[in-house]
Computed example of a mutant assay.
Amino acid sequence: MSVASVISVLDDDPYVRAAINNLLKSRGYIVHTFASAEEFLRSTDSTDTSCVIADVQMPLMTGIDLLTQMRAQGSATPFILITGFPDESVRARALKAGATCFLGKPFAPTDMMQCLDRALAADDETRG
């Protein structure tokens, strides 16, 4: 029996956090939610997460900044970046920084699940 993956959801909007949390928990994932990148980094959960889903636009540290910092520290944790302001230049920056997926809000639950499946499959290959 496999252990459920731990997914960390970072968004400054509590409604978005709750919606993603509910979606992922309904699919059997263990979910940790955070209101900011700083809160995530202070948490012990930041080291055992299987995937990070982070908003691009957050106060103080953006999702792209967090991804860049974690990559600089040697973390290969997959990232899915989400934004209410999808823009091709932001998408390009996110993917260049190493995001597995980039979704504009609102997104369909099936799109999120496809991104998560891809991120976790890539993570399995990296660890494998």
Rank of each mutant, 00 (worst) to 15 (best):
84 G>F: 07
67 L>T: 01
8 S>H: 06
29 Y>E: 03
30 I>V: 13
128 G>M: 15
93 R>C: 08
91 R>N: 07
71 R>W: 06
113 M>N: 03
21 N>T: 10
72 A>R: 09
68 T>V: 14
47 T>H: 15
102 F>I: 03
108 A>P: 02
69 Q>I: 12
96 K>N: 13
119 A>C: 06
91 R>K: 15
109 P>C: 04
111 D>F: 15
7 I>P: 00
90 V>Y: 06
126 T>K: 15
49 T>Q: 05
22 N>V: 14
38 E>T: 10
65 D>I: 08
82 I>D: 01
76 A>I: 06
40 F>Y: 15
77 T>F: 06
110 T>Q: 13
15 Y>C: 07
37 A>P: 05
44 T>F: 12
97 A>T: 00
100 T>F: 04
93 R>M: 08
69 Q>R: 11
87 D>L: 12
86 P>C: 10
95 L>V: 02
109 P>F: 05
121 A>F: 05
21 N>E: 10
108 A>Y: 13
72 A>Y: 07
21 N>F: 12
22 N>E: 12
63 G>V: 05
19 A>I: 12
32 H>K: 15
2 S>Q: 09
106 P>S: 14
8 S>M: 07
15 Y>Q: 08
66 L>V: 11
60 L>G: 10
3 V>P: 01
27 R>Y: 11
51 C>W: 06
16 V>L: 07
113 M>W: 04
86 P>N: 11
73 Q>P: 03
94 A>H: 04
56 V>P: 04
94 A>T: 01
98 G>Q: 01
109 P>E: 09
36 S>C: 08
3 V>E: 08
28 G>A: 12
58 M>P: 05
79 F>V: 01
50 S>N: 14
89 S>F: 09
16 V>D: 01
47 T>E: 13
41 L>Q: 13
11 D>M: 02
34 F>S: 03
23 L>Y: 05
25 K>D: 06
87 D>I: 10
20 I>V: 15
120 L>Y: 03
63 G>L: 05
118 R>D: 09
15 Y>V: 08
50 S>P: 03
104 G>Q: 06
112 M>N: 03
98 G>E: 00
101 C>Y: 05
54 A>F: 14
34 F>P: 00
88 E>S: 07
29 Y>N: 02
25 K>I: 15
39 E>I: 12
128 G>C: 13
8 S>C: 14
31 V>L: 07
65 D>P: 04
44 T>I: 13
88 E>P: 03
82 I>A: 02
88 E>R: 13
94 A>M: 04
30 I>A: 13
37 A>K: 07
72 A>F: 07
21 N>W: 09
70 M>V: 07
88 E>T: 10
37 A>R: 09
121 A>W: 02
34 F>R: 03
90 V>H: 06
26 S>D: 07
105 K>R: 12
100 T>P: 02
71 R>V: 02
124 D>R: 15
50 S>Y: 08
44 T>N: 09
9 V>T: 04
104 G>Y: 10
49 T>K: 05
74 G>H: 02
107 F>K: 04
83 T>I: 09
103 L>A: 05
125 E>T: 11
120 L>C: 01
1 M>E: 11
88 E>Y: 10
87 D>W: 15
11 D>I: 00
68 T>S: 10
91 R>F: 08
42 R>N: 08
115 C>A: 12
47 T>I: 14
89 S>C: 06
